[in-house]
Design a protein around this nucleic acid. Sequence first.
DNA 1: CGCCGTTAGTAATACGCGTTACTAACGCGC
DNA 2: GCGCGTTAGTAACGCGTATTACTAACGGCG
Lengths: 350, 350
Amino acid sequence: MAKQRPRPTSADVASRAGVSRTTVSLVLNERGGSIPEPTRRRVYDAARALGYHPHHSARGLAGGRTQTIALVLRQSAEQVAEDALLTETLRGIAGAARAADLRVLIEPLMPGEAYSDLVRSGRADGLVVSGPLFDDPELRDLVGDGFPVVIQGNAADVAAPSVDVDNVTSARTAVEHLIDLGHRRIACITNAPLVYTAAADRLEGYREALLIGGLTYDEALVAEGTYDAASGHRAAARLLASTDFTALFVASDVVALGAMRGLREAGLVIPRDVSVVGFDDIALAEHFDPPLTSVRVPARAIGEAAGRVLVDRIAGQVVPVRTILPTELVIRESTATPAKRRGGAEGGTH
Amino acid sequence: MAKQRPRPTSADVASRAGVSRTTVSLVLNERGGSIPEPTRRRVYDAARALGYHPHHSARGLAGGRTQTIALVLRQSAEQVAEDALLTETLRGIAGAARAADLRVLIEPLMPGEAYSDLVRSGRADGLVVSGPLFDDPELRDLVGDGFPVVIQGNAADVAAPSVDVDNVTSARTAVEHLIDLGHRRIACITNAPLVYTAAADRLEGYREALLIGGLTYDEALVAEGTYDAASGHRAAARLLASTDFTALFVASDVVALGAMRGLREAGLVIPRDVSVVGFDDIALAEHFDPPLTSVRVPARAIGEAAGRVLVDRIAGQVVPVRTILPTELVIRESTATPAKRRGGAEGGTH
DNA sequence: CGCCGTTAGTAATACGCGTTACTAACGCGC
DNA sequence: GCGCGTTAGTAACGCGTATTACTAACGGCG
């Protein structure tokens, strides 16, 4: 086995085509504007005949480019595991990268771990950083040094281009839908601890909707979820134990599924007793029981946009500082007008 | 901005430490067994002081190694999108790679697209190929040439080491659970078209269980799913329209969710009227309504094992041809003993 | 018609940077 | 004083790309 044929080099192609290595390089990189068709063809033919593929490392060494971008996952393991949209985003990035003949490296990076090896060793030409960042001085330095970085999510205080949805407005729209239906006691379960900007933003949207709707924000109606369905289950139980409400906004479909289970276990029927709105519109949301009203986040498009912005940035072009993609509230059967009072003290203004 | 300090090279480290580049290389790669501690320390100190990171491309060019493995996703876009376990597997691979100081490149490869660029350009030292392969001559050639490849899934006719679960036995166990509960009319919805070995194997497990249980295999009880929940929904509707059954084995949790919805829409209650068993045990399965009995597939462990085998293979060690990881049937509330016949033909009309 | 400035087309060469033979110097034991 | 092991240095190598250099053909002009 292991034929180990010795990799054709550009010199092999050159001699077979009867030209110099320079010409081979120029032709194959489509840079030799002045090279006539016949020569070109000879080079292509020779390359194909030999099965020549330029040696990636050599090319990287010579050109200072690795044709690689890295997707840095700055989230805990559990968080990634629950991120139903990550695969889609990844595909989007890969697609955009592929269009520019780049490839994608995955770099899970626990908080505290450094980017330096990845970047300083010249392994990637640019970074898509996914996930929240409280304060990330190393990342800021990187950006300050002019290294191409795109943030997928809220850029916070880092001066890099970002791609995201408008979490505040999206959440507001979702909650406004509940208000429009006539709900007055609307609870909220966050998708993550509030140190994460996405979570904070969605909660802010919830507040804004209440404000606009003339309702008062009540801390007792807010519970914290942590990425997974189990946390939604717990949060729902907590809320049910301490207060009552006719609608529930959960800032993540995954968490919402757990919450729905919690409601059911309390004997409540969705949407008769409680309406539920989720966030993300994961593929499964449509098949929940009942199908979940949710905010559709265009994960694939986010990935594509992030990839494209990074590619452009690497190419030295001017790129938008901020790319905000639209969301859409998908209304399904988990939301309805509140049931007529079943005679209880329902708190708040009637 | 863009300070553009000019990357320290090994020569910089060498001169700062007062040694030669050779010594730097030996020390930093921990290969110079004969270099005394003081020299070693000087090199380390100099490297740290300068923030030296060996240039990846240069290293690859010199050493013929790229310290990179590629995860080749040989599935359609939709399939990947629905693969709830992919993220976990990816993390497993990344973990194993990291432990050997390798990184992971993602390569979505539509059927028909070639590996050659990736491999012949020396971009990766090895491949984890995920997803089914009907007949893949190029992959076979690669393996024949001695290129390190690990198959995640059923290796089929390719002579590369593989990592997988035993789909046949796992499915059999799941269906046996239904039989043990007393079910006699057990339907099946596949997770994918049967050209995929995993799908075929799971169906085979279903058949075996019936056989062992003394039941006859009835084609009318089998419907084909295609990765997503919607297909499960359709398949369930089809089954309900043409036959009746008291239990349903769905070879994918995602598909099962759709099927459950279909059952519900037909007015059936799970598990009272129909028991359902899924496959994969995705994180959400526990929160379905009712919580879904399912076969737990250790996705993370599969990824880790695949990564580890590949790493060892690249290092030239002898690796197991086949690694089969155990599954576990997780029994939840979606399965129960069949209801006493409520008066005759159950065919959806009660 | 011959010379010169161009330009097109291709070649020669240097370079990027770490690794790895191979080589040399050094100190030690015998 | 010789041989050996230890320790460090020299030089070549891997392979493409960028830059500079050169050659031949071509057009214009005197």
